[in-house]
Simulated assay, not measured.
Amino acid sequence: MEHDATTPALLHIDASVSPADTSVSRQLTSLFAGKWRQRYGDAGYHHRDLAAEPVPLVDAGYVRFGYWVERHGTVPVDEVSALVRDAADEAAWRATRPLVEEVLAADVLLLGVPMYNLTVPAALMAWIDRISFPGALLDPAAGRSRLRDKQIVVVGARGGGYGPGAPREGLDFQVPYLRGYFTDRGVPEGRLHFVTAELTRARDVPAMAPLRSRAAASLDAAREGVIELVDRLAAPPGARGTARQATAEPQTADCGQGRPVGSYAV
């Protein structure tokens, strides 16, 4: 992923299994990426579709090789290959290294994340497991996270309502998980940004029909949040101002009288 060092690099990840014409998360990440590319062109831009090209789940070979590498301390990514012992190690690293290198090359990570069964899609979890290879995200010299200077943009979609006052408040294991993962790996709160559209299933679930106006308002707010974020993050460093979290999570009413309506977003 070579590009002009003066052009910030954007890694765009989509995890929704839904096609672009029906996926809210894909439409929102496309909005961000489109405006980014209007400013910078395709230099430094990379898109990975986790539904079209699923990342292999970690297996015994990945764990075995990861433990072996970890015994050697923090090994630079370009030196891990020297520790390969056999075909199983080689296969594990071949499936992992490109994903790690994409993340390390990026200045901004853009993640499109629908909520599936109250949390993130399995496809995204598989990607997270792979890039979390022992030592791969650490600076070998300083022992600090190499994610700490990156901007992380999480564009979320939820089929139901999980905001303050909603009956399902507290059942969101999507945003808290991703916040925990990235902060645990050294990303400061000021570099971690969330934009969320709620009630995305209101348009097609009859029981949620009374919530369609709230759903539309949430989607409009999410679009505004995406535009604000891309304008700020694509600006020169001195012009970005104080980073803040961009949210689009209005208070929501019951989205199905306690029934699990809208467990899947798009």
Rank of each mutant, 00 (worst) to 15 (best):
Arg240Ala: 05
Thr247Ala: 12
Ala222His: 12
Met208Leu: 01
Pro164Gly: 07
Ala202Trp: 05
Gly170Leu: 04
Asp220Arg: 12
Pro237Thr: 07
Ala207Tyr: 02
Arg146Phe: 09
Gln151Pro: 06
Pro176Ser: 12
Ala202Tyr: 07
Gly163Asn: 09
Arg168Phe: 13
Ala202Cys: 04
Glu198Thr: 01
Asp231Ile: 00
Ala235Lys: 05
Lys150Trp: 01
Glu169Thr: 05
Leu233Asp: 05
Pro206Trp: 08
Gly161Met: 10
Arg191Glu: 06
Arg212Phe: 04
Arg168Tyr: 10
Pro237Tyr: 03
Gly160Arg: 00
Arg148Lys: 15
Ala197Met: 06
Arg212Tyr: 04
Leu178Pro: 07
Ala215Gly: 13
Ala157Asp: 07
Leu199Arg: 03
Ile152Phe: 10
Pro164Phe: 09
Arg168Met: 15
Leu233Tyr: 06
Ala222Lys: 08
Ala216Pro: 11
Gln245Lys: 07
Arg179Asp: 14
Gly163Cys: 10
Ala246Cys: 09
Ala234Pro: 05
Ala222Phe: 14
Leu178Arg: 09
Thr183Ala: 10
Arg191Ser: 11
Ala202Leu: 01
Ala202Ile: 07
Pro176Gly: 14
Thr196Leu: 03
Gly190Met: 06
Gly238Asn: 09
Ala248His: 12
Ala235Thr: 04
Asp220Asn: 08
Leu229Met: 13
Leu229Asn: 04
Ala202Phe: 01
Ala202Ser: 12
Arg146Glu: 15
Ala202Asp: 03
Ala216Arg: 15
Leu178Trp: 02
Tyr162Met: 01
Gly225Gln: 00
Ala215Cys: 09
Thr183Gly: 11
Ala215Pro: 01
Arg201Ala: 15
Tyr181Gln: 13
Pro210Trp: 10
Ala234Leu: 07
Gly238His: 11
Val187Asn: 08
Asp149Met: 00
Ala243Lys: 00
Val153Asn: 10
Gly190Ala: 14
Glu249Gln: 13
Pro210Arg: 03
Gln151Ile: 04
Asp184Pro: 05
Ala235His: 08
Glu169Pro: 02
Pro176Asp: 14
Pro206Cys: 07
Asp231Val: 08
Ala246His: 15
Asp204Ser: 14
Arg191Ile: 08
Ile227Trp: 11
Leu171Pro: 04
Val154Tyr: 05
Leu147Gly: 01
Gly160Ser: 03
Val226Arg: 05
Arg203Thr: 15
Pro188Arg: 14
Thr183Met: 14
His193Gln: 11
Asp149Asn: 05
Gly238Asp: 13
Ser218Arg: 10
Gln174Val: 13
Leu229Arg: 07
Gly160His: 01
Arg240Asp: 02
Gly156Gln: 15
Arg240Lys: 04
Pro237Ser: 08
Thr183Leu: 14
Leu233Pro: 06
Arg201Thr: 14
Ser218Lys: 06
Arg203Gly: 15
Ala222Asp: 12
Gly186Thr: 10
Pro236Leu: 09
Ala157Thr: 15
Leu192Asp: 13
Pro164Cys: 09
Phe194Gln: 09
Arg158Gln: 01
Arg232Pro: 03
Asp184Lys: 15
Ala166Glu: 03
Pro167Gly: 02
Asp184Glu: 14
Arg244Thr: 14
Gly225Pro: 05
Leu211Gly: 07
Thr242His: 09
Arg201Ile: 02
Gln245Arg: 09
Ala217Asn: 03
Ala243Tyr: 00
Ile152His: 09
Pro167Leu: 01
Ala207Lys: 06
Arg148Cys: 11
Ala248Lys: 06
Gly161Trp: 04
Asp231Ser: 11
Arg158Thr: 01
